[in-house]
Nucleic acid binder design. Structure first.
Lengths: 237, 237
DNA sequence: ATACTGTTAAACATCAGACCATCTATTTCA
DNA sequence: TGAAATAGATGGTCTGATGTTTAACAGTAT
């Protein structure tokens, strides 16, 4: 007798159906999902099951739940395997260092892949982002988010969705933990130049150079961050 | 007036408290968590909130829920960042290939780290596992699980818990998806020899060699797997 | 006209109680 | 003694009620 797979939880079945609908384009990223009561009717289940499914999707970073408004499908560039805000409290100092180490080895590989696989569209998005960064730097607007976005766009250009989601999770968790970097002008200037250099290597399809540039970029970025932290601590004294 | 951060969900607060209790040793891995009704009383909340928290912990791979029995804290070696059984339905063929690619680049790095950081205890565990493999191979007992365990023990020896959890997730999802490899004796023999060679390089602390061996091991393993699959498909015809 | 304010409706958050399915352990009976 | 029946515990699901948050609208004062 087949049908043995029907052993899953109701909420898991709902999760699978919704994910499939998103993949098939029935639900568009950024749009609102039907309300809980509507989903109850559609799937002929109780509210608990719908809520468990929504929560699962939320934790997995597929949707964002906004009380009073509804449940929204996350835009793809924001899709993490885990919602950082849920995971961050679980992460202690040791794991944060592990994350940093993982990022150090992952990002160069991702950059190498991106150099090999980036489409014209990918490159245009990155270039546009860099222009925006320049503008913001000139008028002293904050650009921390933009810097993170740069790294994510590269991951997107690697055309490995797992890497993209992974990096999104790592960056999200680290941002949720570490005090946000102070907007030191010299640092930002250096970072932008470094990003532009990386962009050029990726555009040229030079995998090896992209990998090396990303390695040094991540490492010096971490070092500069630590330096600044030490300085501000000294000032505190 | 501060106090603005007290905005979190009730279920998230419960999640944080339970995780902290596990870290502090109040709950021991492998043991049973208090029942839902007990947790209701302890935290003075409704059952929905407790259940949402339990579900979140389950998805994140912190606990395993067994209907009729209770909720159990996962042993550390089994801890994934997310429960493969939950994620697997979301993963399609493309993502599976992404996962394989990720594994190809991650495992060599992990092996390199392991060669640098493995403690005597780590090495003993691996050696013991290899002995068990030899025994199972002689009497023709299945050893698929053991093979996966070998890779996880190496990740454990890398002393980067994030890598360990990541690899556990990847292997778990791939196992949940791909048809389990057939227990072809020639393949198993080759695999064991390959594992032993890797173990020796790691024991010797030879990072570079470990990395290279792992690279070729993963790649040939994938190739042999595809070969076998093709053969069995031809037989099917 | 503009800006502020109160109301309302929709949506999610939480609670409470009930019933079902499954598993464990115990009890019961042949 | 051993197998079958049973009771209790536990998670899974449904339902109804109430609280909070948000957006949108309408009304009022400036």
């Amino acid at each position: 007798m087949p049908d043995q797979i029907t052993k899953r939880n109701i909420s898991e079945m709902i999760v699978a159906k919704i994910v499939r609908s998103i993949e098939q384009g029935d639900f568009i990223p950024g749009s609102r999902l039907p309300s809980e009561s509507a989903l109850m009717e559609r799937f002929q289940v109780g509210r608990s099951s719908v809520r468990e499914a929504m929560q699962a999707l939320s934790i997995m970073g597929v949707v964002t739940i906004r009380p009073g408004q509804g449940t929204f499908i996350r835009a793809d560039s924001k899709a993490a395997f885990f919602a950082p805000e849920v995971l961050a409290p679980l992460v202690d100092e040791e794991v944060t260092q592990n994350l940093a180490e993982a990022r150090e080895v992952l990002e160069p590989i991702i950059a190498e892949l991106a150099a090999k696989r980036a489409t014209t569209d990918d490159l245009c998005q990155i270039q546009e982002l860099l222009y925006t960064c320049e503008r913001h730097l000139k008028i002293n607007e904050p650009l921390y988010e933009l810097s993170a976005e740069f790294h994510l766009l590269i991951a997107q250009a690697s055309h490995n969705i797992f890497f993209l989601r992974l990096l999104q999770s790592i960056i999200g968790i680290m941002a949720a933990r570490g005090a946000r970097i102070e907007e030191n002008r010299a640092f930002l200037q250096w970072e932008l130049e470094s990003h532009i250099e990386l962009f050029l290597a990726i555009s040229a399809g030079d995998g090896l150079k992209s990998k090396e540039l990303m390695t040094t970029h991540i490492q010096s970025s971490a070092m500069r961050y630590l330096d600044m932290r030490r300085e501000s601590e000294e000032i505190d004294r």
